[in-house]
Computed example of a mutant assay.
Amino acid sequence: MLDVQRGGAIQALTRDVLIRRSLEMSPNGFITIISIIQGVALALLAQNAFPSPSPLVICQSIALMMVFVAIFYYYLTLSILIRWAPSFLDCFLPFAVAGLEIPPAFFLGNTVAWNFSVAALWLFFALALWITTKWSPPSHFAKVPMAHRRYLQGLQECRLCLILGGTATAACGLFAALDPGHNLFWGLTGTTTVLGAIGAQIWRIEIRVSQIHALYGVNRPPFN
């Protein structure tokens, strides 16, 4: 009888350790992957921006830098709010999202290519958010269903910002291709659109994260 009880206790302990390790792996892995790829993207951005610092290149570089910050901020926030056992798709998405940050660094000064590459990043990121929304059950937020609703609302708002921003940025690229005489105008319009989408996304995340923390009695004001 003692052996059976001891075996059951060991099995339960092993299961708890396995679950804990599995759940702790996803956020740490995401942040590590994003940080490494963004380091490469940042190096490429600096390498391609400094040799020809025209007004358009400077604006595109600033916008792309803010894209890096916004994506890192999203994954850092995600790693605080939820935990899950990583799957192949979970491993693929961070590489794909962060990898799409690299092409715009090669297109600095090229209005059409830069706008289309950033639009592709935004729209794929929106798809990744949809997948995250689908696989984020209420169990992530214990016995506070309102926190789960606020979390889903935040993801839906961010996805809307990305879809609108990506579509508008792609439109700027299309107009630049059809109207090459106003390359600078469409380039600056594209960077302004990207910055606007980033601002809206961060604004909604800050509001929703503040609301979620308040539900658990934690004072976390927006933009604190």
Rank of each mutant, 00 (worst) to 15 (best):
E101R: 01
W84A: 04
V97K: 06
Q60N: 03
V67Q: 03
F50H: 10
L78I: 05
I131T: 12
A85P: 00
V112N: 08
F50V: 12
P55T: 07
F92M: 00
F72E: 11
L129F: 10
L89H: 01
L121A: 01
L78H: 06
L100D: 08
F92Y: 04
A85Y: 00
L78C: 00
D90Q: 00
F92V: 03
T77Q: 04
L81R: 03
W130F: 04
V97Y: 08
S87H: 09
W122C: 13
A49Y: 15
L81N: 08
F88H: 08
L81F: 05
A85N: 03
L89C: 03
W122P: 00
A105H: 15
A105P: 13
A113K: 13
P104M: 09
V69Y: 09
W114P: 15
I82N: 06
L108M: 12
K134D: 14
L129R: 12
F72T: 10
S117R: 02
Y74W: 06
P104T: 10
F106E: 05
V57D: 02
V67G: 01
A70W: 10
V69N: 11
I62K: 01
L129I: 15
C91E: 02
P86A: 14
T133F: 12
L123W: 13
C59G: 05
P86I: 04
L64W: 10
C59I: 12
V97R: 11
S52T: 05
L89Q: 02
L127N: 13
I80T: 07
L129G: 05
S87Q: 09
T111P: 00
A63G: 11
G109W: 05
L127E: 11
P104W: 14
V69I: 06
P51L: 05
P94M: 06
V97E: 08
V118G: 12
A85S: 12
P51D: 02
S52A: 13
W122Y: 11
W84S: 04
A96V: 05
W114K: 15
A63F: 10
L121I: 07
G99N: 07
N110G: 02
W84F: 11
F116M: 14
L64H: 15
A85V: 04
E101M: 08
G109H: 07
L64K: 04
A70V: 11
Q47R: 09
L108H: 13
I131P: 02
L93H: 00
F68Y: 13
E101T: 06
A128Y: 01
A126C: 13
A70T: 07
N115T: 14
M65V: 03
A63K: 12
A49T: 14
L93M: 06
V97P: 14
V67T: 11
T111K: 14
A113L: 14
S54I: 15
L56M: 09
L123A: 06
F68N: 08
C91P: 00
L123D: 04
F68R: 07
V57N: 02
W130D: 05
A119L: 14
L100C: 03
P51N: 08
V112H: 12
A98M: 11
I82W: 01
L93E: 01
L78V: 05
F116H: 10
N110L: 01
I71Y: 04
L56V: 11
S117V: 01
F125L: 07
S54C: 13
A119W: 03
S54D: 12
Y74G: 15
A98W: 12
P94L: 06
S87T: 08
V118Q: 11
T133Q: 13
S61F: 07
S52Q: 10
V97T: 11
